[in-house]
Computed example of a mutant assay.
Amino acid sequence: MQTLIKDSIQAESENDLPMSESKTTDSNFYVHALMVLVIVLVATSFPIGEAITHGLPPDVMMMLRFFSAALLFAPYVFFKHGFALPPIKSLLGYSFLSIPLVTCFWTMFEALRYTSAVNTGAIYTIVPAITAVFAFLFNKEKVSVRRSIGLVLGTVGALWIVFRGDVQALLGLELNYGDLIFMFGVTCMSFYSSMIKRVYKGEPMVVMTFWVILTGGLWLLMLSASTLSSIEWTAVEPSVYAGVLYLAIFTTLATFFLIQFGTVKLGPTKVAAYGFLNPIFVLIMTAVIGTNAFEWSYVPGVLLVLLAMRFIQTDKGVKT
């Protein structure tokens, strides 16, 4: 993991210029590898989030998560790029970009109080399709026939894995209050993904990542300020703090940087399409730890997802 992140940081220097002037490469294989890493990390956030969601109010938990990530990231950013506020226009852009991001992660914790990880996993599969719509509306990213087929196949395949090929279970899925909350959250995530390239102006990616995380923490501080004094911090279980720290490092700091880096390189739809792999990695993890046995009924869904990734990632359509 350290090697992959190091490679991405080194590649960041190519992004110090606008996209039209940055150095291009014949292959973005390492970027795709980093996106797979992102999905592995994201896949771990659902069971961890479900385990700790009742330990603290969702807004407080998210505030700790964002500020912890910003605090850990600050020394590197300031040492490499100096301690200076971004231009007002950029700072407003980062603040704007952090709003849908904060909203998405808040809805995940809030939704898991009323619904199951299975339902949230099913809803999360629609992120690539919604991202494609936003990318078309805001970035004029054209959705070719090939990419459209890939989005449909990926959605069907991911849902097949979530529901183990049981069509009746899928048709019988009743959206509850928690599901509706998370539906709004994944819409916000799709909007965030499509807006990254609009906000990015060629600055070092680590700088953009840091300020998006920090401004997100400030939004959450304002949201949770009224409840902070009523929390018995010493009564919170250590496992909750450990879970928040894990989420801060691996599914906030690392994934935010890598998603922004990948979106600039590949485009929002191709990056979002890796979300189709999320149920596969959840399946692998649960099979390894023994909480879920592998069944042959999963295979058609896995094959559909892999075929969808082939369609989308080899599409030569315009990225911007």
Rank of each mutant, 00 (worst) to 15 (best):
L4Q: 10
Q10M: 11
A11E: 11
A11L: 14
P18Q: 11
K23I: 12
L34T: 10
M35Y: 06
V36P: 02
I39K: 06
S45V: 08
F46C: 00
F46Q: 07
G55P: 09
P58I: 05
L64V: 09
R65D: 09
S68E: 03
A69N: 08
A70Q: 08
V77E: 08
F78K: 06
F78L: 13
L97G: 02
L101M: 14
T103E: 00
W106C: 02
L112I: 04
Y114S: 13
T115Q: 10
N119Q: 10
G121I: 07
I123A: 06
V133H: 04
F136W: 14
N139I: 08
K140H: 14
V145A: 13
R147K: 15
S148I: 07
I149C: 13
I149N: 06
I149L: 15
L153S: 08
G154E: 04
G154D: 03
V156E: 03
G157V: 03
L159Q: 03
W160E: 06
V162S: 03
F163T: 08
R164N: 14
R164C: 00
Q168D: 12
A169C: 04
E174C: 00
G178L: 07
D179M: 07
D179P: 05
D179R: 08
D179G: 08
I181D: 01
F182A: 07
M183Q: 01
F184W: 09
G185P: 02
T187R: 01
T187W: 01
C188M: 15
K201F: 00
K201W: 00
G202T: 05
G202R: 02
V206P: 09
V206N: 12
V207A: 00
M208G: 09
W211L: 02
V212F: 04
V212H: 07
I213K: 06
G216A: 09
W219V: 04
M222I: 13
S224Y: 02
S224P: 05
L228R: 07
S229D: 11
A235G: 06
P238S: 10
V240I: 14
A242T: 12
A242M: 14
F250Y: 11
T252L: 06
T263H: 01
L266C: 09
T269L: 10
K270H: 07
I280P: 04
F281Y: 14
F281K: 08
L283A: 12
V288G: 05
G290Q: 10
N292R: 14
N292E: 15
L303V: 15
L306K: 06
M309Y: 07
F311Q: 12
T320Y: 10
